[in-house]
Design a protein around this nucleic acid. Structure first.
Ligand code: MN
Ligand code: MN
Ligand code: MN
Ligand code: MN
Lengths: 263, 263
DNA sequence: GCTTTAAGTTAGACGGATCTAATTAGATGC
DNA sequence: GCATCTAATTAGATCCGTCTAACTTAAAGC
């Protein structure tokens, strides 16, 4: 349990009581039980614990009231719940039901520092004038339709073998266009749809292949690269759609070399 | 506990075992206990539970090994831990130690959907060519130095009274510049430093004040607004730095009207 | 090979959070 | 005013995760 605080479970009870009252109902054991999906006989001891912490006023068989302290804590939890949910739904486009679940857990554990920064970031996104929401949505859709099936790039990739190169590295991501002449990288994904994507694949631009930036023409177009020993010329948009794995972190040799890997 | 999965505590044991082995050590009870900050006698039953789940190979008094299943689950947790931490540190600028703590909790609870989207968003930030990292950092710094003390805007504001207008609403945030002629809003913060900030404050542009956009000149500058009954003319940059509370959500009347509020 | 010591386990306890089954208190009906 | 019904509580159990204290094992010293 979080030191100096009440447990996640108790916080949820408090949140439910707050919401019930806020909605104009009275907070009865039965309704609390229903919302938390527990039996009534679990609610009674929970109320006792909350009362012991001075967060509610509880007398046997009468409806529950929040104390000043209780209101404050409950409001704080609800506040976080609503923010996180809104963040996930409106910006990250997480499905509502899932965002609801995630929010109702993060609300208990997120540090004030992280919370504050997410709030500021959220505000930044809307006020910086860069249209981040729409641009991201476009990127995401594109990614879902093109890159979702790439092995080891999907977040649910599990072919992580210990000591091998199979764990992902989370350094800053780059596009091929960002590499300096002479700089090398390993391809993570191609973030481009349809014809461009196909053309690149035909030229051998595939995940896990090593690629080297040779030079860019004065205006940044075309770009000369080296790949599997060949030299190729790419247009700027093409280079921009090739995502490179972050390479800052040293990769250790796998105990038993197994050919294909990434990292 | 998360349905069909092991508890947070067990996942942490698994993660610790993984890390110990990954670092070239052997996973001994003593070291596991030290990392998890529990007594050795707490580790033994935990190992038994992990063994029962088929995640480790455990024989009394000999060092612990991960099974294939165990490695996969552990790597998944470590993967998430590292991503979340990196996200918080490198983008949100959460202090390392705090990000570490947050990450080591979210790793257990974040839904795959949320995780996947955060990963994509992280990639988007670096590859969209909009320089989001630097711009956000500038915004954040600015906010910390100017707006951090605004009551009720700071995430740790607790003067949330139930049934009153004191809970924050998390709709999309706007700047004054984004309001259409005739549209009203309530000021949340001034996101501007130094002289500009002072000038606005002197004119009565303060948090919680209602403000109305009257009209903008053809090129967006100057802008005419109404505030406390006065008409004022602002420059574009000034209007851009005035953050307006989201107003989409209906606010209910407080039971006992108390003058100052926001929402 | 005996002794010492460190590592690991077991025994026994506790608090939190849940359950089912049994009981009690109040409100409702008539 | 008593019978009935529903809401709430209590009793008693279980599992998890932790603790301290006592014990056992095995390695290290000599
Ligand atoms: Mn919750
Ligand atoms: Mn919640
Ligand atoms: Mn953890
Ligand atoms: Mn962790």
């Amino acid at each position: 349990m979080r030191i100096g605080m009440i447990s996640e479970s108790l916080e949820d009870y408090l949140e439910i009581i707050y919401n019930l009252i806020d909605e104009g109902n009275i907070a009865r054991v039965k309704d609390i039980a229903a919302r938390k999906n527990v039996s009534m006989s679990s609610v009674t001891p929970a109320l006792r614990r909350l009362a012991k912490e001075g967060l509610i006023k509880y007398t046997l068989r009468s409806d529950v009231e929040l104390t000043g302290e209780g209101k404050k804590l409950a409001a704080r939890i609800v506040d976080r719940h609503e923010f996180v949910k809104h963040f996930l739904v409106s910006l990250m486009k997480v499905p509502e039901a899932i965002a609801e679940r995630d929010a109702c857990i993060f609300e208990h554990y997120m540090s004030p520092e992280t919370f504050r920064r997410l709030v500021v970031f959220f505000e930044f996104v809307d006020t910086c004038g860069m249209d981040i929401r729409d641009r991201f949505e476009q990127y995401r859709r594109n990614m879902e339709s093109t890159g979702a099936s790439d092995p080891c790039t999907s977040p649910d990739c599990r072919n992580t073998e210990m000591g091998s190169r199979h764990r992902r590295r989370w350094g800053q991501v780059k596009t091929l266009l960002m590499l300096k002449p002479g700089e090398k990288g390993r391809i993570a994904r191609i973030q481009a749809p349809g014809a461009i994507r196909q053309r690149l694949i035909d030229m051998g631009v595939l995940p896990n292949v090593e690629i080297e930036m040779k030079r860019a023409a004065p205006l940044g177009d075309p770009i000369e690269i080296k790949l599997r020993g060949y030299h190729l010329s790419l247009r700027k948009e093409e280079a921009e759609s090739i995502i490179i794995f972050p390479a800052q972190i040293e990769i250790r040799e796998p105990d038993s070399g197994s050919g294909e890997y990434y990292g």
